[in-house]
Design a protein around this nucleic acid. Structure first.
Lengths: 360, 360
DNA sequence: GGAGGATCTGAATCCGACA
DNA sequence: TTGTCGGATTCAGATCCTC
């Protein structure tokens, strides 16, 4: 006998308690974007002195590693119980928390299918120049058990990716502009709203129409929105009254796609930019090598970081080319050459080799 | 007294045992790409039983204590011991092992600076069509402690990336073609040889010339190759005789880049500090001269001691600039200008003249 | 209306030398 | 160790504003 599930609803409360009210093995897919437990220091200002709005919500303050581990294991154990035998889970995070989440998944017997990288086209920069731009987040897709056969719509993913296999790195912009939900005061309703395109791809890849999707950290309901559009059923769990309110209104306004093939969005495939430094890293040009202009008169020396130096002028291939010509600008790719078998070859030829290899 | 380290050598043996022979706090940077295709009871045995039980006691909260976790904690503890206080570690892996490695790093007190994604331009496709193409691997860059100040050549990374911040996702091809080392039978000498371009970027970003780089899973010596080219010292540890042999020959053939080419773009923080008072002392700015913001609206008057005064606000060029803008901070060198031939010139230009004179 | 410039913002573990 | 203070630090994209 089948109990009646609260589908297409938002259940308000602590996710572990709410999940306990659900029967065993009733959910097809879980998508979870839990608090990251960021441990931020003081205020952070941009170089223009404006202040960065921190993720300082009370719900993200879990505590130290031990507290976070207890919290994580509690909800993940319940999640595992309510998953169908061939069900699967997606868990999302950043370096602060994703390693712990992945370890717990493995320890509980989940079987990782892929880790997927969300490469952000427009991440927030590192304002103080202390680290690499934190330009991605990680998602883990795991089956309930090693032997489970979770849904994977391989052909749909291939179609979505212009006919080649979908890779484990997804290039998508962050949620901003009109998609970003504003509160009545005009400020963002939720500090970490995810783009619907991300959930679209997750649900299209690993669920079927009619499936029941649970999101235990529902927030403003992005998972529900994508589910409703794609003809899936959702169950949302959210603790904060404000978010429940926003998500309810949001979902009310969404109409499922009449023809679901129309709902397939295409990802932008950005032409890869090749920095000159790549030629150095790849050994096509070596630190200390000389570059020449087309007549072999002017020279510059390559450094290990891809900058070049000519006399007292140093900088990028473009900047140095411009300065030694006393020109406003210069395309270093065509200006500079390497000596090759007696002749001179523009470095643009080397760049073309890299691009050709990337295409193949 | 300083012990003599076995630099630019390959030490053959189990990495934990070899690391034990090294003194505390002697290594600047560790790069570790540990094996992960391990079977329980397989070819990777515990370093020694006494050590394992100690680790066992210390890490009993982790969960499943299979041999892989014990092995990982054992080598990472040794790695931590021999790292200098401001040292750092890179650990590399895929979803099979990287989550465990990241968790252990955090639990041991390492402080994650970034996780970095190596996005492969030419990954192996997924033949069965049951998952996404596994097109990336993950690297974790972590400092020894939360308060450590590991080396990060921010400006060099920016130069290497054509003038924009280096991001946490690195697009590089897998190691193939001529770079891939073949054994005498024509087959690849090592199953997971890493591209030298990857190590080039790692070492350029987080070490300086002369630093000592340890790789406890040396394999065919890619870390050593990049280190030698870039003027770093390396210590390689490798268990398999065949790999030691291949790596030895490989490293012998490599010629380092000339010293002058190892210089990379320096950050401004590393420039010599010039007090504003120097400009006054040298007569480039005179007591009583007026300073202006870029629009000529706000003004301040220079005093003989290099302080400035604007209305009732007085102090350094930075402090006054910040206060009259009501900003948390201000770079007075770029904020303030002097009148020159009808136009306004930032006082930073005058500072640059002094620095150029100091260089000459 | 449109072009172009100014402004704003996004899951952020974000300074360092010297007294 | 702690406090002070000099001064270094940002990319893409959406929206708003001006001409």
């Amino acid at each position: 006998m089948r109990e009646k599930l609260p589908v297409n609803q938002i259940l308000q409360g602590e996710c572990v308690e709410i999940m306990r009210t659900l029967p065993d093995e009733c959910i097809d897919l879980i998508f979870a974007d839990p608090p990251y437990n960021l441990q931020l220091g003081g205020d952070l200002h941009r170089p223009d002195n404006s202040k960065v709005s921190a993720v300082d919500a009370e719900w993200d303050q879990i505590g130290d590693h031990d507290d976070y581990d207890l919290f994580s294991c509690a909800w993940m154990e319940e999640a595992r119980r309510i998953l169908k035998p061939n069900g699967a889970i997606w868990v999302m995070g950043a370096y602060h928390n994703i390693f712990r989440l992945g370890t717990f998944l493995q320890d509980m017997g989940f079987w990782i299918m892929n880790d997927v990288i969300w490469r952000k086209t427009n991440p927030m920069p590192n304002f103080k120049g202390t680290r690499f731009t934190n330009a991605h987040e990680t998602l883990i897709w795991a089956a309930k058990t090693k032997d489970a056969k979770p849904t994977f719509n391989y052909a749909a993913m291939k179609a979505l990716n212009d006919g080649v296999q979908m890779r484990s790195d997804w290039v998508l912009p962050i949620c901003s502009g009109g998609e970003r939900i504003k509160a009545s005061d005009g400020k963002k309703a939720h500090p970490t709203q995810k783009p619907e395109a991300l959930l679209h791809r997750v649900l299209l890849a690993t669920s079927d129409p009619g499936d029941i999707i649970l999101d235990p950290f529902f927030g403003t309901g992005t998972t529900g929105a994508a589910a409703k559009r794609l003809g899936r059923k959702y169950i949302g769990i959210e603790r904060e009254t404000d978010y429940v309110q926003v998500a309810t209104e949001r979902l009310e306004a969404i109409r499922p796609a009449a023809d679901q093939s129309l709902a397939v969005t295409r990802s932008k495939r950005a032409e890869p930019r090749i920095p000159f430094g790549n030629l150095v890293e790849r050994g096509m040009v070596k630190p200390g090598d000389m570059l020449y202009d087309s007549k072999g008169k002017r020279t510059a020396r390559v450094r290990a970081d891809g900058s070049i130096i000519s006399g007292r002028v140093e900088g990028s291939i473009h900047k140095v080319g411009a300065e030694i010509q006393n020109a406003p600008s210069c395309n270093g790719w065509t200006f500079w050459h390497v000596r090759k078998k007696g002749g001179l070859m523009p470095i643009d030829t080397l760049r073309a080799e890299i691009r050709a290899a990337m295409e193949a």
